[in-house]
Design a protein around this nucleic acid. Structure first.
Length: 425
RNA sequence: GCCCACAUAGCUCAGGCGGUAGAGCACGUUCUUGGUAAGAACGAGGUCAUCGGUUCAAAUCCGAUUGUGGGCUCCA
């Protein structure tokens, strides 16, 4: 009989204690625990493992992420598309997914005698946009983006909270361009990625450039050009990276960005991948200046990676204490006694009218309990209102750090929160 | 998918070497109307994950299934 025994060894008592502290810190930040405590999301046995139910507070944060995502993409020349969640077997035969990715796909459903598969990736659909008409070299680059929800069969033992799931939404985009545009496109994507990740509070990154593996499709010259453009782009943007020799996908070289969270853990989110396979399979082309047909370069990229995973990382990074611009509830108005509820609602209405997310704690509890609960919910601003505040037309401001700002006019409270939101601090 | 462990109230857990279960928090009602991290009393809430086996009797023992956690492998 075989028995597995796990153990760890430490050089010193201090090293062990440090390790235990980290474990404890990680447990406090565990997104599954915070997801429940802060009422952000859940999973349900009735729905199925690896399928995420976004609750109002989690969905609030997601919608903020999605708005930012859309604005930034439109600013950067991407065009928004939407595609269906299922597609015919022939589509996945053409794409090669049934040949190479079948074990991650769910069994097909029968629709009028045709087999349809839930999509594990968005690319074939975006390619349909491209191939729906003839393309000129003047049309390129074409950048198509979509919050695309995909379904992948993941083995039971690997599922984990939001980090590894069976249905997830990618902030997907596909860039189709000419060889001479590749480098600038990659620079654009890399800069975009760092901008976006920094906005969400991440400062440290590990970048990996994965090159051609043994088994690969596509011409050597294309691989070289693509890999070179990745290198050059990284140099131009000025980031350090490691080369993962032979670690690319069979269809193209790639660049992965891992982010370091507040307690030093590393998470894979952003991925930028060339694809020499799909353009061939779907016979994508454009008319060149020379009058001949050419194959466009294709780049897949996801910056958040998946919204689910990124949200999980965000929760752990901030330990649930989201910055004000992301916080599902930005301010909790705390009436001291029942008679202050109408005034509390007035304050809330003023702030909500100005676009803030504000809630009144009108429960029959003592102010102390309401403050405690708002603290535990990690609400950035607590606005205590009693006789004095109602009289003065203000609110006593307490921050979740415990700091007491004293009584401020409602207009000042609004200005302060708005400034904080605008700075995304 | 593989190895190991676990599954008792919404949450965190206790108990139960076989005779149908408890606490704290949360929830409801009432009292209280309180000035910066938990006011009080009362109440409701569980076919002890599911299915099957052993037994006079299963929440408890056994098996399977499902789910969860940790690890392996793979990925967004």
């Amino acid at each position: 009989m075989l028995q597995r025994i796990y153990g760890t060894a430490w050089e010193s008592q201090e090293a062990l204690e440090e390790h235990l502290r980290r474990l404890e810190e990680a447990e406090k930040r565990d997104h599954r625990r915070l997801g429940r405590e802060l009422d952000l999301f859940s999973t349900s046995d009735q729905v199925g493992p690896g399928l995420i139910i976004w609750h109002p507070k989690g969905a609030r944060i997601r919608s903020i992420m999605e708005r930012l995502w859309l604005d930034e993409h439109l600013k950067r020349g991407y065009e928004l598309v939407y595609s269906p969640h299922i597609g015919k077997a022939t589509l996945w035969e053409t794409s090669g997914h049934l040949e190479f990715f079948r074990e991650s796909m769910y069994d097909p459903m029968d629709v009028d005698g045709q087999e349809y598969y839930a999509k594990p990736m968005n690319c074939p659909f975006h390619i349909q946009v491209y191939t729906s008409t003839t393309r000129s070299y003047r049309d390129l680059p074409i950048r198509l983006t979509e919050m695309g929800t995909v379904y992948r069969y993941e083995r039971g033992g690997v599922l984990h909270g939001l980090m590894r799931v069976r249905g997830f939404t990618q902030d997907d985009a596909h860039i189709f361009c000419r060889p001479d545009q590749v480098e600038d496109e990659i620079v654009g994507v890399v800069e975009f990625a760092f901008d976006l990740l920094r906005t969400f509070g991440f400062e440290e990154f590990d970048v990996y450039l994965a090159t051609k593996p043994e088994k690969a499709v596509g011409a050597d010259a294309d691989w070289e050009h693509a890999t070179e453009s990745l290198r050059k782009a990284l140099d131009r943007v000025g980031v350090d990276y490691e080369v993962d020799e032979g670690g690319g996908a069979f269809y193209g070289p790639k660049l992965d960005i891992k982010i370091r969270d507040a307690i030093g853990r590393s998470w894979q989110c952003t991925t930028i991948q060339f694809d020499f396979n799909l353009p061939e399979r779907f016979d994508m082309k454009y008319d060149g200046a020379d009058g001949a047909e050419h194959r466009p370069y294709m780049v897949h990229r996801a910056l958040f990676g998946s919204l689910e995973r990124f949200f999980g990382v965000l929760i752990e990074h901030y330990g649930g204490a989201f910055p004000t611009w992301l916080a599902p509830v930005q301010a909790e108005v705390i009436p001291i006694a029942d008679r202050h509820i109408p005034y509390a609602e007035e304050v809330r209405d003023q702030l909500v009218a100005a676009g803030l997310r504000v809630h009144v704690d009108g429960r029959n509890e003592r102010m102390n309990a309401k403050i405690r609960d708002a603290q535990l919910q990690k609400v950035p601003y607590m606005l205590v209102v009693g006789d004095r505040e109602a009289e003065a037309g203000g609110a006593a401001v307490r921050l979740r750090s415990g700091e007491d700002l004293g009584t401020l006019p409602v207009a000042d409270v609004l200005a302060r929160i708005q400034a904080e939101v605008a700075s995304k601090a």
